[in-house]
Design a protein around this nucleic acid. Structure first.
Lengths: 195, 195
DNA sequence: CCAACTAGCTATTAGCAATAGCTAAAATGA
DNA sequence: TCATTTTAGCTATTGCTAATAGCTAGTTGG
């Protein structure tokens, strides 16, 4: 019988596409092997374990997301950059639900490739917030808030957490507006609280 | 042999406590049965399936969370209510990681008990936002933004998504401040964008 | 052209949720 | 009180999962 001509890279790429189609939770080695035209144990020639496969998907996905976010913000600053990045984030997440789910896995500190992917996303967000002149802890806090808002929204959206039929696009638009407002008043806490 | 004296309620309560201890993902029927002093197949006398058990945990957890949030905001309004609710949300989620993970499961529309639990949380958030005089879609958008921010922050925190050692308490505090600022400027989009 | 390497295979194991069918403990009713 | 019914537990089993062991044939390097 002829060989399938696989390699670790091809396996991960097929797996991430498969995961987007059927959902990360439904990804099994047997299913992936069938899709690749081989038997399940043969997969172990290209990967270490199911866990390692998911880490591989997660790492690639994080780089891809970081890249998408970075491209979206090129040539923009402050609220325009935040807005562009937020939209790119949501569009990518919805277009790649399996990969996005994979990005939610936290990296183990000793996995340098995975932590580097985390750092890539972090760096993009930090760059996007550069125009706000936030320093040290303020920058970290704002980065976390931005990631939390985007991640929370997309997670709730993709998991069906927004039961109501009201426009999710509109809600996201308003969330981003809220983020812009909050970032404008980030260092000056009293700026917007007067009524 | 004497009977264990179990019932569906006791099984779910033990399961949610167990899930908090070992993580929802590590909850197995075999483990739960051992903890209850019975064999794995015997569990099926009290539950329909693993899936149904998780729905049961999720529903109870959603009610518990809604109750916690509601109590925290009693006697408070506007930013004080938002702040109190946000803190109660995070404290409860961290104290009950298994249950909180369970709440992330979306309800199937035909499960009235589960959707009612969703509604309970929604109602609390809507009540807390009542002081902001938001109408219709604005209220929905603000509710979604608030839930997204809280859910995203807690999820990233509990999954280890905040790799940096910087104070997470402080970051959460700043997030809540950001929410207050954003809600103050919710209907008047230009209010806080002047620099 | 032969030797080393390796990508595939079959066979198998252990852990999981789930079902079938049995039995003894509890609850019910005359 | 005792007979009947109900049911909460049990053992045995199935099918699916990830994972390992060991074999073989296709590929590649000297």
């Amino acid at each position: 019988m002829p060989r399938a001509g696989l390699n670790p890279s091809r396996v991960i790429q097929e797996a991430e596409q498969f995961a987007d189609e059927i959902g990360l939770a439904n990804l099994t080695l047997a299913g992936l092997a069938t899709r690749l035209g081989i038997r399940q144990p043969s997969l172990y020639k290209h990967l270490e374990s199911m866990d390692a496969l998911q880490v591989g998907i997660a790492t690639r996905a994080k780089y891809e997301l970081a890249d998408t976010m970075a491209r979206s913000a090129v040539g923009r600053s402050r609220s325009a950059a935040v807005r562009a990045m937020a939209y790119a984030y949501r569009v990518w997440a919805i277009a790649h639900p399996g990969r996005y789910a994979a990005t939610q896995r936290a990296s183990t500190p000793d996995d340098h490739e995975a932590t580097s992917a985390d750092q890539a996303i972090l760096n993009v967000v930090i760059s996007v917030l550069a125009g706000y002149q936030l320093t040290d802890d303020d920058a970290i806090d704002a980065t976390r808030a931005l990631r939390a808002a985007l991640h929370g929204f997309v997670t709730l959206e993709t998991s069906g957490g927004f039961g109501l039929p009201a426009s999710i696009d509109r809600s996201f638009d308003r969330l981003v507006q809220g983020l812009e407002v909050a970032l404008d008043g980030w260092t000056d806490r009293t700026a917007c609280q007067a009524r």
